[in-house]
Design a protein around this nucleic acid. Structure first.
Lengths: 152, 152
DNA sequence: TCTCAACAGAAAATCATTATCATGTAGAAT
DNA sequence: ATTCTACATGATAATGATTTTCTGTTGAGA
């Protein structure tokens, strides 16, 4: 369920290379934002990343975090999960669309293994004639841990 | 693809009955909002409904539309589709979760026929142990009409 | 080391949505 | 039909997440 940290290092360096490719500068804040994004396993919000980065660079502005996240979005290297009732959450590990399961109580977000989504997409294509470019498949409910604490 | 208007009348009266059940008042603005919501086939935004209602009642405030939509949400009689980059869209015809296909060019939203979502939900339940309460299954792309106008 | 476009930080602006509150009115009681 | 009162409306202010703006700073190539 948890990715090996070697993979995370690899992913982090992939992002660094992307920045270099596009000739963006390596500033300490920017690097710290990348690290925070990749090494967080909670699908962090901008606020989450901001607090993380502040521990190392206390003068960091939240605008800087927003700008770096927007940059990664433009590069296609981060997946943005928007919600109407809370701030956006981000996945810099798997920037491509994939399903999520979200706990409505503790706001935990996990990535389930689902193989059927491509079939769904094919079905949609055939039935509607749409050219499908991305998708969002989210399930909302109560995680096992919160179910237990509820029944106390 | 388009529902018969008899069904829409039925749906409209269902909503009116819900209001009566819960002893909410029938104001002209409120009724107009219900009509606009049910009879629109574009999954309208609050702004869309507001403009529609204004044609009949020019002094209507957008706050009134927001409040009526919130009321229907509380009653479980409207489905809210939130987006990070545009205003929420609403479906008062089918208030339960169901898949959508969204054109990124013209912002059209349609309801495809998909039978596989319950299977997906069962799979998620088994794999994660979550108690699933709702879901959001959206596909984003270019509709057939916009594909044509693109190639001109 | 020097130079300068890109960047960081602070604050203001934006946008959708929600809250507030004075006035108006639906609908029950008279 | 008239009155009454709680609820609804409409105008506006507040909110919260995000974006933009502006000014001083800095990464990194010459």
């Amino acid at each position: 369920m948890k990715e090996a940290s070697e993979d995370l290092e690899t992913r982090f360096h992939k992002l660094m290379e992307k920045l270099k490719e596009h000739q963006f500068r390596f500033t300490p804040q920017r690097i710290a934002v990348l690290r925070a994004l990749v090494f967080s396993d909670i699908h962090p919000s901008v606020e989450d990343v901001f607090h993380q980065v502040r521990e190392q660079f206390p003068t960091t502005s939240i605008a800087t975090v927003y700008k770096t996240v927007a940059l990664l979005k433009d590069l296609g290297e981060i997946l943005e999960l928007g919600f109407p009732d809370m701030s956006n959450r981000y996945d810099a590990r798997k920037p491509y669309p994939h399903p999520h399961v979200i706990c409505l109580r503790c706001r935990k977000i996990i990535d389930p293994e689902l193989e059927r989504v491509p079939e769904l997409e094919r079905e949609i294509r055939h039935k509607t004639g749409f050219l499908i470019l991305s998708h969002r498949v989210d399930f909302f409910g109560i995680c096992p841990e919160c179910q237990q604490s509820e029944s106390l």
